[in-house]
């Protein structure tokens, strides 16, 4: 089978404009992956499936991964004008100081696809797509029209991670109930405070249930 670099070159040759990045995997199994850009994803997927040499006709696994916003502290050299007395005269002098600046690198949601070939019996080729952030720009193109096996799995990723797959024929919640609001597989998910409410609550659960009931009667929360 082709290496990831060769696959990258093949994709770039076949799909003009596609931006592909190789993501190396440091683990001993060396299952490297390809990061593809969302606008060309469907074309790339179609190429991967229909190319005679790759023939990745079997989409085995679709999953989401959540990467939180990262706060990165980095040291930056800054040149500032500082008032200083030079030769008895007050004047502004350039001075270089090192400053720690904090910058927030936006997190993203990632969809990971594991592809195999049934006819050529090789694999896996791993492709990933990333959303722009975790809050509002969470749309990715659906690959369900290319591989049907993404249908339920993309629904699951939508349900648990909140990635919205455009072009999916039937994007509904699949494991959680329809009225559920949050996305429980996100890493910053907080359980609602009534999640363990039970009729014969005891100990901690009882306390929480009582606190929750008090909140409900006070009108702070709805249910």
């Amino acid at each position: 089978m082709k290496s990831v670099e060769e696959i990258k070159a093949a994709i770039e040759a076949a799909v003009p404009g596609a931006v592909v990045k190789v993501i190396l995997n440091p683990a001993p199994n060396a299952q490297h992956s390809l990061l593809i850009d969302a606008p060309h994803a469907v074309a790339v997927a179609e190429f991967l499936r229909d190319d005679d040499e790759l023939a990745l006709d079997f989409l085995s696994n679709v999953t989401g991964v959540d990467f939180l916003d990262k706060e990165i502290a980095e040291k930056v050299k800054v040149t500032r004008q500082v008032p200083k007395e030079v030769d008895g005269v007050q004047q502004m002098v350039d001075e270089t100081v090192e400053e720690t600046r904090k910058r927030v690198e936006p997190g993203y949601l990632e969809a990971v696809y594991h592809l195999f070939s049934v006819s050529k019996k090789h694999g896996p080729v791993i492709i990933r797509m990333r959303t722009a952030n975790r809050t509002d720009l969470v749309e990715l193109p659906s690959l369900t029209p290319i591989w049907r096996s993404a249908e339920f799995q993309e629904r699951e990723v939508f349900d648990l991670f909140g990635i919205v797959f455009t072009g999916h024929p039937d994007l509904r919640r699949i494991l959680m109930w329809d009225e559920f609001k949050d996305h429980p597989m996100r890493r910053d998910y907080v359980e609602p405070d009534d999640y363990e409410y039970e009729p014969t609550a005891h100990d901690d659960v009882l306390k929480r249930a009582q606190a929750h009931k008090a909140k409900v009667s006070a009108g702070e929360v709805s249910q």
Binding site: N25, P26, A27, P28, N29, Q31, S60, N61, T63, V65, V112, H114, P124, I126
Partner: peptide, 24 residues
């Protein structure tokens, strides 16, 4: 504590392809 990396391991379970995908 595995080193950072990821892996996909799959076997032929009685019901079909059972895989586990791990990111460390």
């Amino acid at each position: 504590r595995p080193k950072a990396g990821e892996s996909y391991g799959r076997i032929e379970a009685p019901k079909g392809e059972l895989g586990f995908y791990l990111i460390s």
